[in-house]
Design a binder for these strands. Structure first.
Lengths: 215, 215
DNA sequence: CATGCTTGGATAGTGACACTCTCCAACGAG
DNA sequence: CTCGTTGGAGAGTGTCACTATCCAAGCATG
């Protein structure tokens, strides 16, 4: 199909598709003549994934490029490809090393991860960016004086541990080749984030109504 | 304290504090002379909350202003103030009404909320922005062909329902006046989001290692 | 073949956003 | 008195995700 049809079927403007091509988020089409190119279903699928990452997942163009590159790296096994892709997802700046609140937060995080038995934290050779994100969030909570001790955090960690099992069950049930499974795992990681956050807000509204509403 | 001291104790530059004052995120200080103003602990606390919302929670300045305004609206009870504040939190654009994927997603979302017994969904007089966020995310998943049926989503909703109870337990244990509790509820809603997401990514890495790592 | 529309590629521009810089008059410590 | 500091206001900066404009090369039709 031509660029115009790719645009029509994806709902993305031709200008934006050209931008993605330039930025390397989409592989170039098969050149037919000097000024025309042909795109296929794979391009459409990839384009939809890019849109979902950027619009729904809030991933930046630069991060999306890294994520997609990791997905296509045939040198890695499934676990490492998934790890590398998730590594590239956006995460706030790592907390400063000299901040006392960050230092305490780091200790809380380490103790939490030890309790639930996860690696990839501060003790790992290369802690995941998600670990830095966790430390920054705990430090911010502590600075504001809100409860964020290990006992407070543990139920959240256990809940996420259970959900991760559900996540990967979905991925395996989704089936497909290992390549497709890795792509599915990344897509589900990112796209289920707004699902989780919106469900949590709805659940909190419900619970707040039960506890606080005055009639 | 002077602006400079407020800056020092919060770690926010004076230029940025002036910007927040201009934008109405921070109430003006008590004017001492024509060119000097005095700030107190309440300003410091508010400033830290603003920073946490913006930097850790990823809330925009405009949204933060609305959230803070809702917190101070004395006309509402606790539940409504919390609801209004959470209402103002950022959420993607609501899905188009004429999109068939969005329409199917809306039906899934409605069925899901019916199953777990929550209001504030599509059937409510004014559905929460979180509902729109949920529909948009489900629609994106469906367009990509990933599993997002009601049965797939239900465990996530139930998990978030349980966490919401934990959230509000934290708020009530935190104590303080109703005003402070509402502020705590908003802060915990926003600041626990990165905690949840980072824990989920760490948990997925762990689960992926268990299932996929080749040795 | 002439005409006029479409296509893909390159370049520069736009608008939103969160700051950040510059200037200025009024303090106030030495 | 002087000279650095303070708070306020407006303009400027850097980033980011597009988006509008050009242009030359097709292709479709008379």
């Amino acid at each position: 199909m031509r660029l115009a049809e790719l645009s029509e079927r994806s709902g993305v403007s031709t200008a934006t598709i050209k931008y993605y091509l330039r930025e390397g988020l989409l592989p170039p089409g098969r050149r037919v003549t000097a000024t025309q190119a042909e795109y296929d279903e794979e391009h459409l699928r990839r384009l939809r994934l890019v849109r979902a990452l950027i619009q729904v997942g809030g991933v930046t163009v630069a991060s999306a490029r890294e994520v997609l590159a990791a997905l296509e790296n045939d040198d890695l096994d499934r676990h490492d490809r998934l790890g590398t892709a998730v590594w590239a997802l956006p995460h706030g700046p790592a907390p400063a090393a000299d901040d006392p609140a960050a230092e305490a937060a780091r200790r809380s995080a380490d103790e939490l991860l030890r309790r639930v038995g996860w690696s990839y934290g501060g003790a790992a050779p290369a802690p995941s960016p998600a670990y830095g994100m966790l430390v920054a969030a705990i430090a911010a909570l502590a600075r504001l004086g809100y409860p964020c001790g290990v006992d407070d955090l543990e139920p959240y960690a256990r809940a996420m541990g259970r959900l991760a099992v559900t996540d990967l069950d979905l991925v395996e049930r989704y089936g497909g080749s290992p390549d497709e499974q890795v792509e599915a795992a990344v897509a589900l990681t990112v796209l289920y984030e707004p699902v989780l956050l919106s469900l949590r807000r709805l659940a909190e509204a419900e619970e707040s109504r039960r506890r606080f509403e005055e009639r």
